[in-house]
Amino acid sequence: MVRTDVQLMLDVKAGDGNSFELLLQRYRTPLVNFLFRMVRNREQAEDLAQEVFLRVYRAREDYVPSAKFTTWLFRIATNLALNSVRDNRYQKLEVSIDAPVSLDAEDGDERTMDVPEKHPNIEQHLVEDARRKMIRHAIDKLPEKQRAAVLLHKYEELDYAEIAKILNCSESALKSLLFRAYEALRVELAPLVAQRARQ
């Protein structure tokens, strides 16, 4: 039988390293992807994800299963990401005085997952690439809290109550946050949206 996250975490608390390993395997990819989409830098995303696991490990002795494990996990990740985004913005302001930073600097990273055989047609590949770039830029342009809400809602499939706890807001505030984010994405991605809506 598959042990739940809470069971695993309670075993970690009791000193079981294997359970920590299982949590690591279960959440490394979701966390790295969430953080990558938040901070747009792969190296930084991995560093932050490691930090999340480290904090989970440090908190093991005080762990009480009062909320869902994912709520706790993504709350740690979201707080780290929001702080990091704010720090980055500050640093970018400083750096940009000397040298403008390209927003596309990290875009190449995601291509590593593309299997060439899936794209026998190079033109099609370029079109898809351009689409993805547009979508990523639209997400990047969202204010960070809206971005976190969209990512948690869309990719982590957490329910509204969980996301509201993670973002420290009410469920109705979250719903309006998401509505505004989707409105902004709809406008930003209008050509693609129109194309898709026609299908």
């Binding site: 790295v32 992807n33 590593t112 997952m113 990719y155 949206v193």
Partner: peptide
């Protein structure tokens, strides 16, 4: 319709895989 389209577009982004050193670093 448009929100459905936006959700569909968000699904187009591929997942990245953590690097080989990720677990070792943790």
């Amino acid at each position: 319709n448009e929100f459905s389209a936006v959700a569909g577009l968000l699904d187009e982004l591929p997942l990245i895989e953590p690097s080989a050193e990720f677990d070792t670093r943790v």
